[in-house]
């Protein structure tokens, strides 16, 4: 089958980029996947995505990153794309306080529509505009600690911390997956059931309890 051709990776992780309009989600994506930046990138209509394959902890990981429209109006459409996502980058703009204040709402959005175990990283973007800053880094730090999120300030324009942000999220996801796979193997061997090799999609594991056979 055709889809085997593109299968040269150990894991495929789906990540969503969310946050208010104009915080720089699309540029974070283009910086990470193509090393490009456009000062005048247009607003995202609906969803777009790009992929990049990289090595994390000795494994080949294909990151499929979904970039979503920031405007509330599009949320009904974009939230459909949270399904199956194992990671989320929640982006705000350090020069626009309101985009930081809205982070709470985006978290609620994730709670409502994404998998409960999704790995979330909060990102304060546009750190190159330090002279216009209206959200102190400590505020971001404190909030993320309170909510149990990882946190980084990035600059898509100057390519600062973008790579690190994705690496961190992907690595965290990979660790969870490895643990789960291990646990699954152990339980499989103790239960004497045969299991599939690798779990491609962590998020679906808990929701995807293909039910009845496992209940006994």
């Amino acid at each position: 089958m055709a889809h085997r051709v593109d299968n040269e990776y150990d894991y495929l992780f789906k990540i969503v980029l969310i946050g208010d309009s104009g915080v720089g989600k699309s540029n974070i994506l283009s910086r990470f996947t193509r090393n490009e930046f456009f000062l005048e990138s247009k607003s995202t209509i609906g969803v777009e995505f790009a992929t990049r394959t990289l090595q994390i902890d000795g494994k080949t990981i294909k990151a499929q990153i979904w970039d979503t429209a920031g405007q509330e109006r599009y949320r009904a459409i974009t939230s459909a794309y949270y399904r199956g996502a194992v990671g989320a980058l929640l982006v705000y703009d350090i020069t626009k306080r309101q985009t930081f204040d809205n982070v709470q709402r985006w978290l609620r959005e994730l709670r409502d529509h994404a998998d409960a175990n999704i790995v979330v990283m909060m990102i304060g973007n546009k750190s190159d505009l330090n002279h216009l800053r209206s959200v102190p880094e400590e505020d971001g730090q404190a909030f993320s600690e309170k909510e149990g999120l990882s946190f980084l300030e990035t600059s898509a324009l100057e390519a600062i911390n973008v790579e690190k942000a994705f690496q961190t999220v992907l690595s965290e996801i990979h660790q969870i997956v490895s643990k789960k796979a291990l646990a699954a193997q152990e339980s499989a061997s103790t239960n004497g059931r045969s299991m599939q090799g690798t779990t491609i999609n962590v998020a679906e594991a808990p929701t995807n309890t293909k039910g009845s056979c496992c209940s006994s």
Partner: peptide
């Protein structure tokens, strides 16, 4: 509610952004 009806202020902000 969590999915709000946007107000004029929000529109103004996004219009300027675009």
């Amino acid at each position: 509610s969590s999915r709000t009806v946007e107000d004029f202020e929000t529109w103004q902000r996004i219009i300027r952004l675009d």
